[in-house]
Amino acid sequence: MRFSSKATTLLILIAVIAIAPVFFPSSYYFRVGSLIFVNGLAVTGLVVLIGYAGQISLGHAGFAGIGAYACALAPVHLGLHPALAAVFGAALSATIAFLVGRPILRLKGYYLAVASLGFGILVSMVLSNEARLTGGPDGMAVPELGLRGVLRTVGVDLSNTEFWYAFSGLVLVLGAWLALNLYHSPTGRALRALHGSEIAARTVGVDVAHYKLVAFVLSAVYASVSGSLLALQNKFITPDVAGFMHSIEMVTMTVLGGAGSVLGAILGAVILTTLPQVLTIFQEYEQLMLGLVMMLVMIFMRQGLLPSIARSVRGRGE
């Protein structure tokens, strides 16, 4: 079952991103918006992995951490421009995902979840403990991207938060477009086939291990770019970005909105990013809420919020 075609999904996404600022009373909302887009990007990557290919990863914050620290470290140590550093981080994440994914993806079910969990924790520990390189738990500064200055010279003067809203929104649309294209491609069909039944897929000639690896590497690149965007936007980064809770947040966003639909997963990112801002007094219970949301969705709405609502609406109409 597909909720909407590629074009409508993209149109809705672009329209919301473009129209929402009209209702923003202050630039703080641009900040929340850009956080949503950054999370949305990571979650779109997880749609490919969880929704298309049916694999679970609890360590994707590790890739976000690699992307984030690449932006902090590569400009200092390798002399790369921050934008190139983000690309470098994505390439590094892809390589690591490839090397780690090959053995990990032979594992099925919760073995894969546990192995990826271990990977995520490993990255977070390295970032915390290699204080000489990463600044340890106190974090380190990230250089300015510099694109805002370039825009200013051509007459587009955006405030910092406005720029990051527009820029991360653009990257999200691009990411969503790629993920939607993938869905309808031969690779997408192969991924969905192995999601449905690995044995059946193998019988009809799908190279299961290869396609699982493709999905894993792709989602790692998405997570890495989202980490880079976060680092460049905040201009400061700490190992929290690679933390276990961040991995869980990503998966919960994906599953809550609907892992099978790009728009649904992004909706999950919208809800779980704005919720802590609305319910600031419940900060203490945030982790509890995450767990509860995940459980309730798994029990009552196994396809996620958006597909479930869509089906019930459609069901009533018939």
């Binding site: 909407s4 809705i12 919301v16 929402a20 209702f23 909302y29 909706l267 919208v270 704005t274 958006l306």
Partner: peptide, 15 residues
Amino acid sequence: MKFALTTTALALVLG
């Protein structure tokens, strides 16, 4: 529908 949901979420924050 999706648009309405997204804007509802945003409006919630605004309000």
